[in-house]
Simulated assay, not measured.
Amino acid sequence: MAKVPVIEQCVVSHGLNQEIMIEGLADYLVRNVNLVFPHRHNFYHFVLFTAGSGSHTIDFEKFEIAPWQIYFMSPGQIHTWEFEGEMQGYVVNFHKDLFKNLLLRPDYLNTLSFFSGLVRDGVFEVAENDRELVVELLERIRNFEGEKDFVTSTLLYLFNLLNQQRVPSLSVESNAYNHTLLRNFLNLIEANFKSLHLPKEYAALLYITPNHLNALCKELLGQSAGEIIRDRVILEAKRLLVIKDYSVAEIAYDLNFNDNSYFTKFFKKVVGVTPEEFRKNK
Rank of each mutant, 00 (worst) to 15 (best):
G54W: 01
Y71F: 15
E125T: 15
A215C: 04
Y90L: 02
P5S: 11
G76L: 01
R239V: 01
L118A: 08
E82G: 12
G272W: 09
S224Y: 09
V151N: 00
R142G: 04
D149V: 12
V233P: 00
L240G: 03
E84D: 14
M73L: 13
P5N: 13
R232P: 00
F185Q: 00
L198N: 09
Y262I: 14
S169Q: 08
N101H: 13
L137Y: 10
I7L: 14
R239G: 02
E8N: 15
Q9I: 14
A237Q: 05
E19H: 14
L112M: 11
F99M: 08
V233A: 04
F257G: 04
F266Y: 15
Q18N: 14
G272Y: 08
P199R: 04
V4E: 00
F46G: 04
R183N: 15
D121R: 09
N101F: 10
L240R: 09
K244I: 02
Y207Q: 14
D121C: 05
N101T: 12
D231A: 12
Q9L: 13
G272E: 09
G52W: 05
P67E: 07
E19C: 09
N93M: 06
E236F: 06
K62E: 15
E23M: 13
N184H: 11
G52I: 05
S247M: 10
R140A: 08
F267C: 09
Y246S: 09
H95G: 03
V134H: 03
M87V: 11
K244N: 15
T111D: 13
K218W: 01
V36N: 13
K3V: 10
